[in-house]
Design a protein around this nucleic acid. Structure first.
Lengths: 182, 182
DNA sequence: ATCAGCATGTAAGGCGTTACATGATTCA
DNA sequence: TGAATCATGTAACGCCTTACATGCTGAT
């Protein structure tokens, strides 16, 4: 019960690297991080509010006067300690929820063409994501001297390697199903 | 808004293969399916209740009299149609939520030893799961003549292939981090 | 002028987990 | 006799998404 909310550490992790607004945080989450963690405004803003109360983050005065309010957050010493504690905690929940695999598992209900089609749709998704990740990788390779970038780079190579494995599997699976028909 | 609940089709898919009790369904979900989809009693029983109202499943008389009630469900023609409709729907949400990758991404906050440790913990989890999947694969290879088993088999090979890719990446990532220290 | 993007925040509602409540059967 | 497993179900609660509300800024 309670306190499974990982959005807190995602925000803290981002703020450990640079000061950001809630809007900026959303953009970062929609980038590389989006491949292994999601977050919406409806979770980001309330989290920032609560963490401010707890002293994990602080608002920074905007500087720019006039115009719509813009709240830049920065991480506090307590926030950094909280983040480190989480990093050192050995338990980590890794969850995969693939509707495609569910459809594959129950493929026997339909003709094999339906499953073949579903595999092809999956392949297309994977190829698109792979192209994005390869672009990320190229860009990161230019800035690998920065410590944080080494870690970003590793998450990107993780994505590339697994997506490449997916594509190999797709080809095998299609062949397996076609052969089974004969 | 609403009707994202995939537990319904998971149950329907299982019932398309054999008649089951809620308890049985939970056991199936904790098996192979658990690698790509989760479900608890707190979601299974309410789903069965609602699907019965909608006529997608029906209760079968227990047969065995005396003892604790045991409700065996079977799928109806409407349930089968609902399942087929879902299988033919091209959209499928595939989501990965890996806390390990989150920790990796923010690894720059700590010494590289912490990330190295987190990768090793991940490796152990993957190796354990791989052993289970290989066992499933061996058992399925004996019964591949049954149509449904071909599909179960493919989901298992998907898991094995991706976990093997994970392990290769782990090794590379550890070496990368050790080299970066020098 | 208008539209996209910047920017913050709330409200409703769905989904799902954990814990609880209850009790029978089987096996050591 | 006690523990594990079988078996069903509810209640509380947390988490998150979508949609809504609001309004500025800059480019076309």
């Amino acid at each position: 019960m309670g306190k499974d909310r990982k959005i807190d550490v995602v925000i803290l992790g981002l703020l450990a690297h640079e000061n950001l607004t809630g809007y900026d945080i959303k953009k970062r989450i929609d980038g590389t991080i989006g491949f292994f963690w999601k977050g919406s405004f409806g979770s980001i803003y309330p989290s920032l509010g609560e963490m401010e109360k707890q002293g994990l983050v602080q608002k920074k005065s905007d500087g720019v006067s006039g115009g719509r309010e813009k709240i830049i957050y920065h991480i506090t010493r307590e926030g950094r300690a909280y983040l480190r504690k989480w990093l050192n905690d050995e338990k980590a929940v890794n969850e995969l929820k693939y509707e495609t695999l569910l459809k594959l598992y129950f493929g026997g209900v339909e003709k094999s063409e339906v499953t073949l089609k579903n595999i092809e749709i999956f392949e297309e998704q994977v190829k698109e994501n792979l192209a994005i990740l390869r672009m990320y990788k190229e860009n990161l390779e230019k800035v690998l001297d920065k410590a944080d970038h080494k870690y970003y780079y590793l998450t990107v190579t993780f994505g590339i390697d697994t997506y490449e494995a997916y594509l190999k599997w797709c080809k095998k699976a299609r062949e397996f199903l076609v052969d089974a028909e004969k």
